[in-house]
Design a protein around this nucleic acid. Structure first.
Length: 419
DNA sequence: TGGGTTCTGGGGACCACAGACCTCT
DNA sequence: CAAGAGGTCTGTGGTCCCCAGAACC
């Protein structure tokens, strides 16, 4: 992270946008991708902290760095000791996630405590861009959310029994996870896109995991409130001094930054530090799904965001798959910059073992991806209905608008061409 | 197996103009 | 500082055209 933002040229770049091929600071990322529906679709991910030029795909828990594929191979592929490092998949996101959403997305990156809300409210300005809160895909009521959570829990329990061996490959593909096949055991059962659980709505505190194996013993959804409540507090775009936006307990640590202008050491007061000790534990171990991103933050299309959360031994991986309406791991991870090898094949670390038939699952995944790609359609949103109405009735010549009164060959009102 | 031709699909450009937006008085 | 005038910019849909890739010989 030694490069400056491609957009503002001032702040340190932390996010990589493949669509724009740009390294952006968090503030600019938010601003740029909130501009319109199309830009909201851009998939972004963390920037590799080693080369600072490629999107990070994994995070090394030991080294506390986010790495791109090349740097990961370089760092972990050669050394036997380094290859044993725990690594977690870093997933991409789209839309304009709130602070809580981003902290959920990358909570597994967190080795820092979230600062208290009040601290951030005091220290950070507010974003000028209004938060978009989608309502159509998230449960509209607490009851429904609880019901969905319950369903997810039930599915998780089921899949844990039946899915350990047979569904690992697919789930790994769908979730983008490359860390460990056992995590599959905590994914909801289902088929195709529906295998992915719809996470609870933001703010849900009721979700619990049936951690009968102890994996979720430390999960405490009530602790989720330790996370930042909104993006504004996290990124503080409104600040005059960009550095202020990252002042506070955990921002630097959130992105594994060690050299961020004293972000870690510059905690504002004891309140943040106090929360730190609590958050440090929970941030690493909670699945973060109940604090999941809002639908609009995940994807701005008509499609339904599907978020997959997997967790194992305190690590969580959160995968967003909403770009195509239902989950397509291949597509999603192509969007994220992952190579097809990484997407479809076995990860360079930790082969899944003798679970199922990797080649068959891979073929199925490719088929699903191709099928989905065929049916994919990007919604065009009309911003000005009045202009659309006018364009609909405007006369054209070979598709081009013609001046009023001129001879035309296409009158949309008559549905016939007049040559 | 490599080169040439044909076919196919995707994406951008083009057009006029109402209305939003901005600048100036 | 508010209001009005004037200029500029944006976005809208159907069609054409260009180009890349696939298919075929």
């Amino acid at each position: 992270m030694g490069y400056v933002c491609d957009f503002c040229g001032e702040q340190r770049s932390m996010v990589y946008c493949r669509s724009d091929a740009a390294c952006l600071c968090l503030s600019c990322d938010r601003n740029v991708h909130a501009a319109n529906a199309l830009s909201k679709r851009h998939s972004r991910t963390l920037l590799c902290e080693r080369c600072s030029s490629q999107p990070a795909l994994v995070r090394c828990a030991e080294e506390k760095v986010s790495l791109c594929q090349n740097c990961d191979w370089t760092g972990h592929g050669t050394s036997t000791s380094a290859s044993a490092h725990k690594r977690q998949t870093i997933n991409c996101y789209s839309g304009c996630p709130s602070a809580s959403e981003l902290s959920s997305i990358w909570s597994f990156v967190l080795d820092f405590p979230s600062a208290s809300e009040s601290t951030y409210e005091q220290n950070m300005g507010l974003m000028s861009i209004a938060e978009n809160v989608a309502t159509e895909t998230w449960p509209s009521s607490k009851e429904e959310a609880d019901r969905q959570n319950l369903e997810s829990i039930l599915q998780m329990s089921d899949s844990r029994e039946v899915g350990k061996s047979s569904t690992w490959d697919e789930s790994r593909l769908m979730s983008g996870s490359t860390t460990n096949p056992h995590r599959q055991a905590h994914q909801p059962a289902g088929s195709g896109s529906s295998t992915l659980p719809k996470l609870g709505y933001p703010g849900s505190k009721s979700a619990t995991f049936s951690g009968d194996d102890g994996l979720y013993d430390d999960f405490n959804m009530d602790e989720m409130d330790l996370n930042l409540e909104n993006y504004d507090e996290l990124f503080g775009v409104g600040l005059n001094n960009p550095e202020e936006a990252f002042e506070g307990a955990g921002i630097a640590s959130l992105f594994g930054t060690k050299d961020m202008s004293g972000a870690e050491s510059n905690c504002q007061g004891s309140a943040a530090a106090e929360v730190s000790s609590v958050g440090r534990v929970n941030a690493m171990q909670q699945p973060t799904c109940s604090n999941a991103a809002s639908a609009d933050s995940i994807v701005s299309t008509k499609t339904e965001p599907v978020i997959c959360v997997t967790a194992r031994q305190g690590h969580s991986t959160l995968s967003f798959s909403g770009i195509t309406g239902d989950s397509s791991a291949a597509a999603d991870y192509q969007d994220c910059g992952a190579s097809p090898m990484l997407l479809m094949g076995e990860p360079p670390w930790g082969p899944p073992g003798a679970e199922g038939s990797p080649s068959a699952n891979r073929t199925n995944a490719v088929m699903r991806y191709k099928e989905k790609k065929k049916t994919r359609q990007f919604e065009k949103r009309v911003r000005y209905a009045s202009r659309k109405a006018r364009a609909d009735v405007r006369k054209r010549v070979k598709g081009r608008f013609v001046k009023a009164g001129e001879h035309y060959d296409y009158d949309p009102l008559t549905e016939t061409r007049s040559y």
